[in-house]
Design a protein around this nucleic acid. Structure first.
Lengths: 110, 110
DNA sequence: AATATTCATCGTATATTTGCGATGAACAAT
DNA sequence: ATTGTTCATCGCAAATATACGATGAATATT
């Protein structure tokens, strides 16, 4: 990718918000999160009935949501119970809210 | 990518939210949006002073934000003035708000 | 012991994203 | 006419993402 040796760093908040947004950037993962926030918790199998995807693909999406910190997986072999990671969920809520809650009163040019 | 011939379709809202989130999924684009919402409008050149990226790369990020409907580019050769697309911005605000504004009172399992 | 269920991970194929430099288009100023 | 400014787009390279089937691990059931 020809990445130049960057000295630059984005702020923590910016990185965090981009990370959350990226994890939300696929319809399947939106579905998963909506499902989790409606059903409190669920197993991978439950999601297979909701999503038109192979089990391995869903597992991959779950991994990405977990890596982003949006969900938690409670292992209970051979099942895994997933639920929203409330701590980070609130942070995400806050970051998105801040991004959108800007004061546009001064805008008059477009 | 071995995509199977899907009959399935995600809901409009889900697709729309994922599209917005995807566009927000890079720190450079977060910076751009924050800059725009602070400065009302700006030119590409202004962003080059804020971002550690080549002009062509910034232009590419702007294109993605434009394609997602989050910003507008008012051509004024040889300059282009960018600003937030307020109409879609409000929709995004609404969609994210709805996603996060879930009632978790019933949750007691994790 | 054999089988079934649940799930993560690996290997593979393809698409998309990120980034750069180079080029070119559009106009303004010389 | 030439030059400078501003910006999009092209061509390229490398990294990431999306998706599948296959395999394997863990456990429960038979």
């Amino acid at each position: 990718m020809k990445r130049s040796a960057q000295v630059f760093e984005y702020s923590k908040d910016t990185e965090q918000l981009a990370k959350f947004a990226k994890a939300l950037g696929h319809p399947a993962r939106i579905i998963i999160l909506k499902h989790l926030s409606n059903q409190s918790c669920c197993f991978t199998g439950d999601l297979l009935e909701v999503l038109p995807l192979a089990q391995s693909t869903v597992s991959q999406h779950l991994k990405e949501l977990k890596d982003a910190g949006l969900i938690l997986g409670e292992v209970n072999p051979p099942k895994v119970k997933y639920c929203i990671d409330m701590e980070n969920w609130k942070i995400a809520q806050q970051l998105f809210s801040t991004l959108f809650r800007e004061d546009f009163s001064k805008i008059d040019c477009c």
